[in-house]
Design a protein around this nucleic acid. Structure first.
Lengths: 127, 127
DNA sequence: CGGTATCCAAAAGGATACTG
DNA sequence: CAGTATCCTTTTGGATACCG
């Protein structure tokens, strides 16, 4: 028999602090304002910096840079710079990034399925 | 045939802004410093406020309150207050909360499976 | 005991000017 | 074009004192 959610979670949270911190870091990545939407924009293949700016209306120049650097340092995204003038830089998902994005979809599906219930709870709670 | 990750993600991000914001909100819940660990502590049944404080070393009084109120307003956690002296308050997962916690485990498993690779990428990147 | 109110520090995010 | 540097605002988290 498979473990209950609770048992699995205990497995995780009883591991060394390093793993606990790491798991929360990856959760944090999900929660960052632009990370998931950036990964999504990269899902279909390489995209240039400026194209990402356009695809993510509202993001600032600096924050897109920070977001991409973070995803890159995690190994979820790769950066390729072509030494032309004007310069051209393309970002794309790595295999690790695709794998990560894939897992996230089950959570996205949950959010969609339960949006109405969560929002009605929030309504009730406010009242 | 099932949709690719990219196609599913596009489905989501092309929906109305309300849903996009909602999905990011739920991602944000994952990223909050104590939310997931709090849900985990509640996985085995009702727990009192003070017991949660002990189970989550480092959390402040105020932040635990805020975390619980947020989870409660989402409908993931329920709060039951027993009118005794001294007062006793118990928190527990709702069905929605259990469902949410369950989905999160696939992501936790991913994080564990790929921790070494991500961390080695971070090392390389720093250098 | 289980909070709320107040105050503070740190981090995230945004606007914008400058540069190779 | 694709950044970096600087400055500012908002949000998050933490410490602590007080209260029913």
């Amino acid at each position: 028999m498979t473990k209950t959610a609770s048992e699995q979670m205990i497995d995780i949270c009883d591991k060394d602090e390093k793993t606990v911190v790491f798991v929360r870091d990856m959760f944090g990545r999900l929660g960052e304002k632009w990370s998931m939407r950036t990964l999504d924009e990269l899902a279909d293949g390489p995209v240039r910096f400026t194209a990402l700016m356009c695809a993510l209306p509202g993001i600032s120049h600096r924050v897109l840079t920070v977001t991409l650097r973070t995803l890159e340092s995690d190994g979820l995204v790769s950066r390729t710079s072509y030494p032309e003038t004007p310069p051209r830089v393309e970002y794309e998902l790595t295999a690790l990034g695709e794998s990560f994005l894939g897992r996230v979809l089950s959570l996205v599906a949950w959010a969609q399925d339960n949006q109405a219930e969560v929002e009605s709870n929030r309504e009730l709670f406010r009242a």
